[in-house]
């Protein structure tokens, strides 16, 4: 039953991600439907197979989903309500989007610090959900690390993004401050020391994840490079004749539009 109601839906989600890389639009659409079914069945697996230890991950997913959606949808709305050529929302929606993001982040944090009925629970079988003790430290640590490094890199690469750099530093700093608070002050269900251990384990997870994915990308690149270097080189073409150049100039002339000042 666990294989059917928990692992098979997870397999469907992976299959769906794989199908999104196919060129055929109809296959991509089928992939999205399969992914939707997978997510739905995985989400309810904490009800259908509560005896499985992995069902705690499904309970956690359902608990954090409102906060994650608020954050992502909020940023999406704020992005497409901005002063950009591909605007999709009215400029008045920008503060609403930013408020949604802040609310989502506050909701996620309040799950650690408060215990009220209207906040999604992080409890599973009478104890703190063990996957919550993986998710929150990893999320805050990754957020502080990526945003602080991102703020520095972004400041280097462009002239119109000094404001972006400041915001990234600010958010990264806030996430880091929350981490420090969590390792010094007890949460409502977890002690500061317990959380500190979880953060250090999260650092192992984060570095292991980056090293593992990095090595795979390296192997992928090496496999392609090995193959490409064995292929025969392209034949060198002779330079264009005067007649070909005149023909190209004619075509370019025909396709240039615009007034004098352009």
């Amino acid at each position: 039953m666990v294989a059917l109601l928990l692992w098979a839906p997870l397999g469907l989600i992976f299959l769906s991600i794989g199908l999104q890389f196919r060129k055929d639009r109809s296959v991509q659409k089928i992939g999205k439907i399969i992914g939707g079914i997978g997510i739905l069945f995985f989400s309810i697996s904490f009800l259908t197979v509560p005896s499985s230890p992995s069902a705690a991950s499904s309970a956690l997913f359902v608990s954090i989903l409102p906060a994650l959606l608020l954050m992502l949808v909020g940023l999406y709305v704020a992005l497409f309500a901005g002063n950009i050529p591909v605007r999709r929302f009215s400029p008045g929606m920008r503060p609403v989007g930013l408020l949604m993001f802040v609310s989502g982040f506050a909701l996620l944090e309040s799950m650690h610090w408060n215990n009220t009925n209207w906040i999604p629970s992080i409890t599973w079988e009478g104890e703190t959900n063990r996957f919550w003790m993986i998710f929150r430290p990893t999320f805050l640590l990754a957020m502080s690390s990526f945003l602080l490094a991102g703020g520095y890199v972004v400041n280097l690469i462009g002239q119109r993004i000094s404001q972006t750099s400041r915001i990234l530093y600010l958010m990264g700093g806030s996430a880091f401050l929350l981490l420090i608070c969590s390792v010094l002050i007890d949460g409502y269900q977890t002690s500061a020391d317990e959380f500190h251990n979880s953060v250090l384990f999260a650092a192992s997870d984060l570095l292991g994840f980056i090293a593992g994915v990095g090595l795979t990308v390296l192997s992928f690149g090496l496999a392609i490079w090995q193959f490409e270097r064995k292929r025969p080189g392209l034949e060198r073409l002779s330079p264009p004749t005067q007649e070909q150049l005149s023909h190209a100039a004619e075509i370019i002339q025909q396709n240039i539009r615009g007034g004098e000042d352009e």
């Binding site: 992995s54 991950s57 992502l72 901005g82 119109r160 404001q163 994840f209």
Partner: peptide, 27 residues
Amino acid sequence: VHFIVTSLAILMAISIMVLLSFVNLES
């Protein structure tokens, strides 16, 4: 399962970084 939870946390952090960067781009 651990990998999925860790990936979700890391992908969320990266998504926030990317979206925040674009939200604050000036015209």
